[in-house]
Structure formats: structure tokens, C-alpha cells
Nucleic acid binder design. Structure first.
Lengths: 337, 337
DNA sequence: GTGAAAGCGCTAACAC
DNA sequence: GTGTTAGCGCTTTCAC
């Protein structure tokens, strides 16, 4: 096998036709005789010809590819959203190019630059960490949809998210309904989604006349940060914890049990997201479940729409979460710990 | 903002120089006067110029991109391997393009085709499902390294994997050491990795004189399949279960507890992989841990090496797993269930 | 230092 | 139906 791949030119000479005919034949044009078509297809197969997408996209000015940024591949919530994206996008003949910023926000920008250089036709950002100006600059250049966040607006940028304030309120309502009043919130740190969930917590607490009980303990969105934050939370002697997301909630439960307290007998814990692993019996996490695949599907639909009409009005779609009661929450104990 | 992006030509006219000089300046060539360089850089910035990677890769015949196939984004084991890949690859100025076949093996081939059309310089396949011929065809075309599997060999294809037979034997040894003899294996289904783990189980059982106790219950590599397989396993009245991977083990534990049996008091369970979530107290899974990030790092090193020397001899690297004893295994009960 | 010209692999008019 | 031509955006000799 030669060092360089066969080109359309090689196929043409082998089939004894011109380059353009090969191009036509391979793209299934009806204006190619059956005889030629067969010779061309055969020649291509024998040579192991594979079209060069770079060359193609250069001339047609389309890549049929959309770029997807995922904040953290380790959090299953993103894989589940991505499922929805992929399914929808493929049905429309598009492929996805995935990147993940990892821990470093600067990398996030660099990776997006790479996607743009590769001429992706659209960008789906799942829980990014970009500043508003950077985001607007990107959205001005390429159709962009933001998933899970909706704090930044731009004329050509769509969003699909969950109403985090409402979701957080549902969590508190559930806990209060179980008789809890010493409800502490383990926050997800300094980001818009976590801010909204903390805000919902405050609103609901206030509404239930528990304003004096409001305690937000700073934490994060990973299992390790959830685990670590429990120490400060327990100092407040809560009977229930509302944790910013499921993964952190699992970490929190680990720490609670490590402190020889039982969930839910001593402390109830509710998470947020609805990751599938939370449904497994050993975890059995009560949570506010977002329709994850729907989130992805909607994002894909929005990007496809905007690719077809770049000047479409900005769309800000919201999906609603539902309370899923499982085994980590229960009625408050008669004698508090 | 015009509908089409600024090109190098636009930058050139704006800076009052030729295209070639722009190209030189932007690539940091020393043979450009400081005055010109500044004018060019400014013009590029004002225009929001972004190089077109398609055009560039067309002429330099390099994409500086390597493609990565991940079998299943939901299994955290792959995210952890990917971490290692990304870290290493970035240090060498390469980017990654991620794809995931999802449930359908045919999609896997299609996605790889896309990657190749985009002229990736190498392919890292993390737990693929491709037939041997397809794999050899791919490896003949582009530098390829296979992670976690090493059942297929080809002259220009490298592999990095864990010795699954040895790992499985360690699992059985541990269980036997705890006094177990009725050890059932929940297999991961019909794939080479699972086959190797089952084989290790058989070897170790035989070696411990427990050949008569060998029972392999067909399962899969997801939590749901692990859960489902438990029914058949329990019919065999085991005191211990060796499950093909951690995720399935978590599913299995869920099912065991659902059947009102305790882990590890009634049944010990050991998994395989060493995903980080398994270390969380509530899960606390005893397992055979692979050095996941190392696996990724080594794969990246191999692909980089082969990109620089396509005819390098095939390398088949093995990393070794370690037994991590946590809370889901324990001594066999005096009176069997 | 700088510009002109050629060409990477491909598609899309436009002739014939 | 088929071939010729031009050109997508870029890099890279090669003159000057």
C-alpha cells in the first residue's frame, strides 16, 4: 500500500474516465451511465478509495458536522444528554465531534477554536464555563446552543435548560412534606446552575417560613466535593440535605455514613439530575430528575434549525424536572440527632 | 459580519501584503519584518480571522488530530482511560476527535469512516466491536492502537491492555482465600475481554481444585445486565460472585439486596476495572483495578510513536491490575445460605 | 523580506 | 453522458 491514499484522480484513471465523472458517480448522480458507474465503483473499491472530507468541505463549504463540548465526561449526566443529541443529529445526516475541556477552562476555549477551524456547522455546549463575551463572539460566528445553562443571552444563540429554581423548590417542598425543617443545602459551587438551585432552595425555605433555617454550605459538583462538604454541613445538625447534583449527593451520602449516621433514618438526602445510576437499589437516590435525553434531543433540533436559518430568532426552551422519590429521603425522626 | 468567514486573502489585502506573507507571518516565520508582522497580526485580529483547518490539512497533509472511539460513554471506565489519552496527546500538539458507536456495531464502522475522511492521523479504539478483517483494513490505512483488547494482531497495529486472565485469577484467589468455594462467575457476554476474564476464572477454580464448582452465568457489561443475571446465579446457591466488570457488579449487588440477601454477609461480590465510583463508601466495591489513566497514556504514546514511524514493529503492551479489597467481599459464612 | 505561481483533493458550472 | 475548467483556502518553492 502506497504511502499516500488514493485520490479521485487515481480512481478516474483506473476506471478510464474523468475526475468529474467519478465525483458524479460517487455522489449518486442519475446522469452517469450504468456501465461507467460500475467501472467507477469497482475501481474505487479495488483502490480502497476514501473521499477526503477536508477537500470536500473546502469546496462545498459544508462539513455536516456539529461540535459538542461536554464539561466533564465523568459525570454520567452528560453522557445521557449526549445520547439524545447523537440520535437526533444522525437522523439528519450530521456527525458530531466531541471535545471535553476537562478541568482547565482555558482548554475549553482552545478546544472550541479547534472545532471552529475544522469548520463545524454548529456548536452544542453542554455545561460550559466560558465568559459571556467569549460566548457571544462564538455565537456570532457559528450557530450555537447552550444546554443546561440559560444565564447568557445572545441574538443567535439558543438555549435548552431545566428550570433549576423550580426544581430546587420541589426538592425542598418534598423534604418539608416529610416533616423536615433543618434542611441544609450543599451547593455546587460558583456557577450559574448551582446558583439557581441555591436560589430555589432559599425561595422555598422562605416560603415555608423557614428563612431562619437557611444554610448554604459551599461544595462542588463532583463526588469528592460532595463528600468533603459534609463535614461543614453536619456541624449545622441538619435532618435533611439538598445537594446540588446527584454525583455530589452520592459523595455526601458516603461521608454521612462514614460519620456513622444513617440515610435516611438520621439524615435525608435528595440530589438533582436523575442520572440512571441513582436508580440502582444500592444507591437508591431520591432526586429531581431532568429529562436528560430530551434535553439533548431538543438541543440537536435547535442547532439543526439554526443551521438552516441562521437568522432565526433566539429560542430559549425549558424542560421541567420531576421529583423521583426513592430511598434516601424519609420522614424526620421524632427525636432529632 | 459577512456570511462567509474572512480568509487569508482578506487579511492580506487589509494589511497590504501578499497571501504568502500572511501565511509566513502567522506561522511565526523569522523572515518577516516586524513592521509587516504587526500589520498582519492586527489585520487578522480586526477581521476575526480563523485559519481553515480543512484547507491547511489539504496542503500540509497533516491534521494533527487523532481519532478516539469509545465503546460506551456511560461506563466511567472509558472516561478514565480517555483522561490519560488526552493529557498525553495534548502535550504533543495533537487534538482528539471523539466518537462513540453506541449500541449499534454498524454505527461504529460508519463513525470510524467519518474519522478517516477527516484525515485523522491515528486511531485509538477503546473497546471496539469490529471484526478482525475490518480492523486490519483500518490498521493498514492509518496508525491504530487498540485499548483493553489484544485478541487481534496486525503488523502495524499496537495494543495496550490488561492481562485479564491474570486479573480474573486474582479475583478468584482472593475469594478462595476468604474460604469461598461456591464461586459463580457472572460473565460479561460474548466478547474477548469477557472471554478472557471467564477463562481466568476457570483456570483459577481448577487450580484450587474447584473444577466441579465452575459455573459461568451469561450476563453483560452494564448495570442492567448485571442485575438481570443475578436471578440465574442465585439459583446455584453461591457464597461469592465474581462479576465481569464493576458496573455490572453494582447491578448485581442491587439485585442481590433486592432478593433480601446481604453483601458481603450472605454473598461476597468482586468486580473488575477499578472505576472511581466503586471506591465510594456506599458502593465500596472490592475489585480488580486496572491502571486506567496509564492505559490511556500508553495508548497515546504508542500512537504518537507510530505516527512518526509507520513501519515500527507492532507493540503489544500489558499493564497489570491489582486487587483492591473493600467492603463487598468477606469470609464465607459458617452455615451456607 | 516579499510576491507570484503552483497545487493539495474535490465539486460544480459549462461545454460538447 | 462525459470531459474541461476553475477555484475552495491554504502552504510552499522559487524568483527577485
Amino acid at each position: 500500500m502506497a504511502h499516500s491514499r488514493p485520490t479521485i484522480h487515481d480512481v478516474a484513471t483506473r476506471a478510464g474516465v474523468s475526475k468529474s465523472l467519478v465525483s458524479l458517480a460517487l455522489s449518486g448522480s442519475p446522469k452517469v451511465s450504468d456501465a461507467s458507474r460500475k467501472r467507477i465503483v469497482d475501481a474505487a473499491a479495488e483502490l480502497g478509495y476514501r473521499p477526503n472530507a477536508a477537500a470536500r468541505s473546502l469546496v462545498v463549504r459544508r462539513s455536516h458536522t456539529i461540535g459538542v463540548l461536554i464539561l466533564d465526561l465523568h459525570n454520567p449526566v452528560f453522557a445521557e444528554i449526549l445520547d439524545g443529541v447523537q440520535t437526533e443529529v444522525r437522523q439528519h445526516g450530521f456527525s458530531t465531534m466531541l471535545i471535553s475541556g476537562g478541568v482547565d477552562p482555558a482548554l475549553e476555549q482552545a478546544e472550541i477554536d479547534m472545532l471552529l477551524q475544522f469548520q463545524v456547522e454548529g456548536l452544542i455546549l453542554i455545561a460550559h464555563r466560558l465568559p459571556a463575551e467569549a460566548l457571544r463572539a462564538i455565537a456570532a460566528e457559528v450557530p450555537t446552543v447552550i444546554v443546561t445553562r440559560d444565564d447568557i443571552a445572545a441574538p443567535t444563540m439558543d438555549t435548552v435548560s431545566n428550570d433549576d429554581i423550580a426544581g430546587a423548590r420541589m426538592a425542598v417542598d418534598h423534604l418539608v412534606g416529610q416533616g423536615h425543617s433543618r434542611i441544609v443545602h450543599l451547593s455546587g459551587g460558583d456557577n450559574p446552575v448551582s446558583d439557581a438551585r441555591a436560589e430555589g432552595y432559599r425561595q422555598a425555605m422562605t416560603q415555608h417560613g423557614l428563612a431562619a433555617q437557611i444554610h448554604v454550605v459551599p461544595g462542588g459538583l463532583t463526588d469528592a466535593t460532595g463528600y468533603a462538604a459534609v463535614h461543614d454541613a453536619l456541624a449545622l445538625k441538619p435532618t435533611a440535605l439538598f445537594v446540588a447534583n446527584d454525583v455530589a449527593a452520592m459523595g455526601a451520602i458516603a461521608a454521612i455514613e462514614y460519620a456513622n449516621l444513617r440515610v435516611p433514618e438520621d439524615i435525608s438526602v435528595i440530589g438533582y439530575d436523575g442520572i440512571s445510576i441513582g436508580g440502582m437499589r444500592r444507591v437508591n437516590l431520591t432526586t429531581i430528575a431532568q429529562p436528560l435525553a430530551d434535553l439533548g434531543r431538543l438541543a440537536a433540533q435547535q442547532i439543526l434549525r439554526r443551521i438552516n436559518d441562521r437568522s432565526a430568532p433566539a429560542q430559549r426552551e425549558q424542560v421541567s424536572a420531576t421529583l423521583v422519590i426513592r430511598g434516601t429521603t424519609g420522614p424526620v425522626a421524632v427525636t432529632p440527632t
